[in-house]
Amino acid sequence: MIEIHGVKKRFGQQVVLDGVDFVVQDGETVALLGPSGTGKSVLLKHIVGLIRQDSGVVKVDGKEVARLKREELRALRSTIGYVFQNGALFDSMTVFENIRLGITDEAKYRDMEYCRERVAKCIALVNLAPETADKYPAQLSGGMRKRVGISRAIAGSPKYLLYDEPTSGLDPVNSDIIDDLVKSLATELGVTSIMVTHDVRGAFRVADRLALLTSGRIVQQGTPKEFMASTVPEVREFLERDFGNITFAA
């Protein structure tokens, strides 16, 4: 379970998170929505301990992330797969080497036979061709890079998967492919997922629960049905764009 209570974070004078309360139960897929620059990715980075909050508590499996010692944090991170917005693939390494780095168990990481099998399985899970393994990130399209990023995140069989804008910059068809992938991974691997996105349509397709982060706070959270029925002005405004009436330019 991931628990976030009263988390505040500011960068210089800019308040990014202003008392966020947010809980994700085991096995859930939660979409964290919000306009650009509202601190969705910052919140996600608190969960893996890449950023420390100014105040408040972030707990994963009951452990307070900010209080963990180096080795404890390393152990916690091995249970979390993080999918970065632009893949964050190591460009000097092949796809195989990138995904292999995701195998967090040192003994398994050193076993090349296991690594070959595991990487091949992860590549197949994200619907990429086996020969992709020998390519470098620069030789891949944006959608393929995102899928390799997901492959790397699942290579260590994590308990949690955190997606940072997995569909941003992709065309609708590729966005749907990634959304389906997020959904199928949650079902097949039984992982708990948090997906940061501003793609409302995708969030409704994938998530069991949604939360809207604006002005540094969660203003609404609930099931897709509860979300659709919400009367909170920020939620209405956010949903309007995707589910409102289309006005044609000409």
Partner: peptide, 16 residues
Amino acid sequence: TMRVTEQIDALETLGR
């Protein structure tokens, strides 16, 4: 470049 493209963050999240 690795820092701004989050490759260093990625290493950390992989427990490395």
